[in-house]
């Protein structure tokens, strides 16, 4: 039945439906947030949840589409957060709406610029080395922010105007998802995926590998930067330690759990993993343990050997 409907929907109809879904989704979110359906704790989760979705979908562009592990995603988020916060803190003569809009774009652009700057020399590397260098860059960004005056150093930045609203978060989520989806169906996106699938063949087909690696990094950094701005203007306080290596790994867990390359998966995983620990009211320690186990089990299981091993174990038990 659903398949039939889907078949009938061509181009324009489908687009209309997507817009419909977006609007319904927005209304549902507003209802949940503004109505008295949720308790205060749940309400306070909505914005972080949205930010996590943006971070997960954007990291999926580097890790899922391009196939390179980025362990410094929190660094790009930090650049966006500090850029946006410093802007709104100092440009007080602008009214909130234009100020925040500019802050979001500025945060994204600044993060993207750093994405390119870091990417240009580094992306000639691949695999393990690339991953470790992104980690190094994330840490460099954090310690430089820690040592600067304009960022408030280790004490952090406080009294950032709280401009972040559900609507802003929702808008940025939609833009992130639409861009990620459309990227996949463009020649640029196909080039990026082909690099993941087989770099040597991609090059032989005329794909300039470095350029498209940088493009993927820049787009991912752009959205991470925007997520950072939303984060800064939600909590009103920024500290460099928020954006450490552990934060980058948290985002990676969303992407891996949701399935690398799957946008839907990233959204679902980010949602579940943000809400679940709160619902279970488990301590932070347990969350980390579960994340760790999830990473290992998924990877081992996904490789054919893992499946084999498990079935062999089961068989052994039967035999006994």
């Amino acid at each position: 039945m659903i398949e039939k409907i889907r078949e009938k929907m061509t181009g324009r109809n489908r687009k209309l439906m997507m817009i419909g879904v977006m609007i319904v989704g927005y209304i549902a979110c507003v209802f949940l947030a503004e109505g008295n359906l949720l308790n205060r704790q749940m309400k306070s989760l909505i914005v972080p949840l949205g930010i996590n979705i943006i971070l997960a979908v954007s990291l999926n562009i580097t890790t899922g589409f391009l196939g390179e592990l980025s362990l410094g995603h929190a660094g790009f988020m930090a650049i966006g957060a500090y850029t946006g916060a410093i802007f709104t803190k100092y440009v007080t003569w602008l009214s909130p709406f234009p100020a925040f809009l500019i802050a979001i774009l500025l945060g994204g652009v600044m993060a993207a610029i750093f994405g390119v700057l870091i990417g240009m020399p580094v992306l000639r590397l691949k695999g393990d080395y690339l991953a470790i260098v992104t980690l190094a860059f994330g840490e460099i960004i954090r310690s430089v922010i820690n040592a600067m005056d304009v960022t408030g150093g280790a004490k952090g930045l406080s009294k950032i105007p709280t401009y972040t609203t559900y609507t802003w978060v929702y808008l940025v989520i939609i833009v992130t998802i639409v861009v990620a989806r459309r990227l996949l169906h463009s020649r640029q996106g196909r080039a990026i995926v082909s690099i993941r699938e087989n770099t040597i063949a991609a090059e032989a087909m005329g794909v300039q590998v470095t350029r498209y690696k940088i493009l993927a990094f820049a787009i991912a950094a752009f959205f991470a930067g925007m997520a950072g701005v939303l984060y800064a203007h939600n909590f009103s306080i920024l500290k460099p330690d928020t954006f450490d290596y552990n934060k980058s790994i948290d985002i990676l867990v969303f992407v891996v759990l949701g399935g690398m390359g799957s946008i839907k998966g990233s959204v679902i995983a980010a949602t579940v993993l943000t809400i679940l620990p709160e619902v279970l009211r488990s301590a932070d320690d347990l969350r980390k343990l579960l994340y760790a186990l999830a990473l290992i089990v998924i990877m081992v299981y996904k490789s054919g050997n893992g499946k084999e091993m498990i079935s062999r174990l089961l068989k052994k038990k039967e035999a006994v």
């Binding site: 592990l69 790994i249 690398m260 343990l289 994340y291 990473l295 290992i296």
Partner: peptide, 27 residues
């Protein structure tokens, strides 16, 4: 089990291992 898996999978598993040891110590 991951000996012939792509490097990305191995690296993620190793990161998971690192987190596992840390969180066990934390608990």
């Amino acid at each position: 089990p991951l000996r012939n898996a792509p490097p990305l999978a191995v690296l993620i598993t190793a990161i998971g291992m690192s987190f596992l040891l840390q969180s066990l110590a934390l608990l």
